[in-house]
Design a binder for these strands. Structure first.
Lengths: 182, 182
DNA sequence: CCTGAAGACTTCAGTAGTAAAGTTCGAAGC
DNA sequence: GCTTCGAACTTTACTACTGAAGTCTTCAGG
């Protein structure tokens, strides 16, 4: 009956056209960049979610593993620090760590020298999971960029870095939770 | 006391270096693009959240308004269709619409010809909010891209579109919820 | 007509997040 | 050496989303 079996999502081009129609004083070039960025990110998150699910972890857990590994040996950070790096509230971090300890991906210990401090450490199992995830991710990322020449990849990295610098100077530290408005 | 008052988040450069250290078979050029994309998106969402909060709505509500406006006049869509466009489950859509109806941003009616179908329509108030949000967003987006020449903006749009095309063909319709894996 | 299957939305139970209050320990002043 | 302040994590109450089950309507067949 429905002539449109999947109305679903309009294409990027249709969306740009709709913006022009509904809000004239908008630079289509700018809107194209912004819309593509946002869609791209959604798609990438879906892809990562698929991959981490394959490994039996969630994207959220993967982020924690990533932060610990990127911190470098001995792969230990406090919950507060982790929360800042992931852009979560400390409360959310507490719960996430609970789950990950239960799954054996990380350990939670009290700091010897300061008993109110907690230290989250990567287990061997956690490190293995991270490596597995990275192997999958790197294949996906290479595929994602496969249509771009080496030169284009460099250019893209450079352009994105410029944008990033701009927002980062505008929002000194948005590493915190989303609502540090007041 | 702490020599590192805000350990917070490592810079993009530090992060790339850490990846090289921890996982050698990774193209730094690729990782730079991917990391920049992900950070950029986080920052942008923070910025949008700040703006919509200024208008007394949430980012989630803004997305619904956006979908309705972009659908074109008469600015009406069913909850199921909306859910697909936003990448949510129908259940989440029901609740979101509840809130937005209560705030007078949209209306919920039964379709005359098919009484099981529901139609969500934009109110004048909702359209106003969308316009306000767009004005703020377009200023922000112009600022975001201000360091790029017209040529660079075009190039960036083109490169991002290439990536998008690649993921969209790889994942035919990920417009649905995140977990259509099984 | 009545029945059964399919579609579209809603309801329910469970999970993960935020904000704010609570707890515990360490450090600085008196 | 007590006491108070502050830092770091946890707990509590609430909000939003997912997946699955439920309800209601339409449509096709006997």
């Amino acid at each position: 009956m429905a002539d449109t079996p999947g109305p679903a999502e309009p294409s990027l081009e249709e969306q740009i056209a709709a913006y022009q129609r509904e809000f004239q004083d908008l630079d289509p070039q700018v809107e194209k960049v912004v819309s593509a960025l946002s869609r791209l990110n959604r798609r990438m998150n879906v892809a990562y979610g698929r991959q981490t699910a394959e490994l039996g972890i969630s994207n959220a857990e993967w982020e924690v593993l990533k932060a610990l590994v990127l911190a470098g040996r001995p792969y230990r950070l406090g919950p507060g620090d982790l929360a800042k790096r992931l852009g979560l509230t400390p409360a959310a971090m507490t719960h996430r760590i609970d789950r990950m300890v239960a799954e054996g991906l990380v350990t939670r210990e009290r700091d010897g020298s300061n008993r109110v401090r907690v230290i989250v450490g990567l287990t061997d199992d956690g490190r293995e999971k991270w490596l597995d995830a990275m192997r999958l991710a790197s294949v996906f990322e290479e595929e994602l960029l496969q249509d771009l020449s080496g030169e284009d990849r460099g250019k893209l990295g450079e352009l994105l870095t410029k944008l990033l610098r701009r927002v980062e100077t505008a929002q000194p530290d948005a590493g915190g939770r989303l609502r540090d408005l007041d």
